[in-house]
Design a protein around this nucleic acid. Structure first.
Lengths: 291, 291
DNA sequence: ACAATTCCGAAAATATAATTTCAAACACGC
DNA sequence: GCGTGTTTGAAATTATATTTTCGGAATTGT
């Protein structure tokens, strides 16, 4: 039986997380996922599902302050019973307590909404077409973002650079754009990020690029950047959140999905490139491996 | 395993109720009361709580079509898992049925899962504490990221820079870190992004910073960067997705939530700063307004 | 009321779960 | 790199849970 009665097991796991070892953290993560049902089976089952050994589970139970695994389970059952019989069960579950008004909760709800609404509107055709454009190593890829979207462009660039050769990040300072345009060939691809407070220069860049035979992929918001007049494919994403700024979460999700899809398309080459990259890192000792 | 797959245990109990004997009915009633948690303990406990003997419970499990009591329990766990996760998951069929195997769908589902699982684990206290740290204009704020998280750090920096003065983005090239450390005062705040393939240098940076009296806020993954030993607050976020890389969507959501919260805290000052920023943009015509 | 039948739980037998032990693997400081 | 302390799971051990057996109690039909 635990010393401190009013804590839930999940709270305790989170409190002790830092002091847990690798295998224990792996278990902790599994336990918190689908909590608490994922810990309701036998110690063997729980261990297997978390990918650790039974003794690890037993040790964990002790660390959490229980006399053993069965004791922990009993606590979980009591919690579950309380939670289920509680009329306020409707409570969207992941909001542990009465905090539905907390900014973190409202913000996340809003992001979840945006994700669902944006993604269901995306034309799979358009997505696949974009993936082919990005996978085509015969043509160079250029990426550009604006004041805020610069980071997204940078993120996209960092990954694409590993996946394939001939990837350029266009500096966000528009003075040097003519130089970049000079290097864009017919058939090249330009990925443009432009969300509201649309930037005039970016629109012009897209226009010029397209006029020179470059395929323009535009990632913009639900209202649409004027650059869409000059784009081959356009993605309109939801970006509104309870904040003074817009959210880049949905655009980032799209970017990562594209990365995942392109990477799958070019897997053989990407694998080789990643291997080389690893070697380079090892060699230059830029960072050490952990875990 | 039951013959008929689509029935719930409770439905089966009710269907067979008439054919049950006295002791069995007593047990059945207890099982349906506080269903299904009341049947989650050991057979002995369940029997005791229902006021019947263990063999009765075992026989009951067979009557209900299971191979034994453990089999029944497994079925209950599956039911419970489905019942608990469904209301949250709301598989909104936002995809046109056929495409549930498409990478875009799978990726987004995975992101949604990560969001729900990460956010429900965040300690609201820790979040609020971080917001106070970030809102405190008496102390400078430093931000640092690694190879991949650099973009995130940059994104965070871009926004915080507008909200408040004294914000520094620490260059990701570790050669210059001593210079940055030199400028960190006791009481300053350092926000560190470090997700897996943890970077040794970053861990050291956190260590040195903390030893010099700097509050370290660490944003890491579910396994936890070693830097957490040197941090004041740690956020463990889920980053696994069906891709060769990890996802930064959840970290970005946290970053944006923090931005929104800090901005609300410092609203008067932020509003003034945003106004000034607008004027500066107008003046230098760095970009033109649309909409 | 009294067999015949079914039901039920104590106790034994069996199966499974939980814990402990311990040696190999690992991370970490020097 | 090299030794030291920690972590970890396989295997052995112990504890517990589950099932089976079986005789007495309850129920039913006549």
């Amino acid at each position: 039986m635990p010393d401190i009665e009013f804590e839930t097991v999940s709270q305790r796991i989170r409190a002790l997380f830092e002091s847990l070892t690798r295998a224990e953290r792996q278990l902790a993560n599994r336990m918190l996922e689908n909590y608490p049902v994922s810990s309701m089976g036998s110690i063997t089952t729980v261990a297997e599902e978390a990918g650790v050994s039974a003794p690890t589970v037993a040790r964990m139970a002790r660390k959490l302050g229980f006399s053993g695994f069965p004791d922990l389970q009993a606590a979980l059952r009591r919690e579950l019973e309380a939670a289920i019989s509680d009329p306020i069960t409707k409570h969207d579950h992941w909001a542990s307590d009465a905090d539905t008004t907390h900014i973190l909760y409202r913000f996340t709800e809003s992001v979840l909404d945006n994700l669902r609404n944006s993604l269901k509107q995306i034309d799979i055709e358009a997505f696949d077409r974009t993936v082919s454009l990005l996978s085509d190593r015969r043509h160079a890829l250029h990426i550009v973002g604006g004041r805020i979207t610069r980071s997204l462009a940078d993120y996209f660039f960092t990954h694409m650079q590993v996946i394939r050769p001939d990837v350029t990040l266009v500096a966000s300072n528009s003075n040097s754009w003519p130089h970049y345009l000079l290097n864009m060939q017919e058939g090249d691809v330009l990925v443009v990020f432009d969300i509201r407070r649309y930037e005039h220069n970016i629109v012009r860049l897209a226009e010029v690029a397209q006029s020179r035979g470059v395929s323009v992929v535009l990632i913009t918001d639900q209202w649409g950047s004027p650059a869409s007049k000059h784009s081959t494919v356009t993605f309109n994403l939801r970006i509104e959140v309870p904040s003074a700024w817009d959210s880049s979460v949905v655009p980032m999700t799209l970017v990562e999905s594209l990365i995942a899809a392109v990477q799958a398309d070019c897997w053989e080459e990407t694998k080789a490139r990643m291997k080389t990259l690893e070697d380079l890192f090892d060699h230059t000792k830029l960072f050490r491996k952990f875990l």
